[in-house]
Amino acid sequence: MIYADALCKHFDNGNLEVLDNISFHVDDGDSIAIIGPSGCGKTTLLYILSGLIRHFSGTVIINGKEIKGPSRKTAFILQDFGLLPWKTVWQNVCLGMKINGFSKKEQNETAEKLLLNLGLLQHKDYYPVRLSGGEKQRVAIARSLALNPEILLMDEPFSSLDTFAREKLQNILTKIWHANRLTMIIVTHNIEEAVFLGKKIIVLSGRPASIKTIINNPDAGELTYRTADSFFATCKMVRKMVEDI
């Protein structure tokens, strides 16, 4: 359970307000898609939830405890994936485990299993520069799953991919989400993505970001939802919200 209350954030010694009174909560195993115009502070919001930004007003409570900093239980996939160019796919996947002092044996077993599941085992010795955008994203997912997190935060996870790769990865992500009972928060500017992945869709207004509305979208996460009439109806509704900003 993630509980965010009255989050505000200023940059530049208080001159630049980016978040204005953001409150929401997510139940365990649920997902939220946050959508809004670019530069509105969505990324800042994720940084706060991940514990990377510590100076803000308001409270974030995860599993009953106020966050004090980054936690192993919260995985954060940055925009552009944040893969280290000097590490191979395998080393990138093991990175989090290495930092957290997992044994070599444990690292090898987990990395092998994850890469096999995500269809990347044959590329394990590649450097990221050789991978396509979709493959990089899968490595980033593998890396964050390696620490067996409860919460997955993603910043524009599929924005750099073409439609085919994006939908394929959305399906993969959906399966992982259910299989690992993850709680997900996804920031996106793609309406279909928000509707497909978010059981709740938070529409943010422009800078400073404040919540315009929260749309309930209980069917999200079903693979067949993408072609359902209700899917298109929700997309239409979200589009209208976004256009009004």
Binding site: Y47, S50, G51, L52, P70, S71, R72, T74, A75, F76, L78, Q79, D80, G82, L84, K87, L95, G96, K98, I99, N100, L147
Partner: peptide, 21 residues
Amino acid sequence: EKYFDSLLSMGATDVDILKEV
């Protein structure tokens, strides 16, 4: 900066960041 953030979010210390990044 994103490399630092990426590692910090996994709980990296300064030593880890020096070594890995």
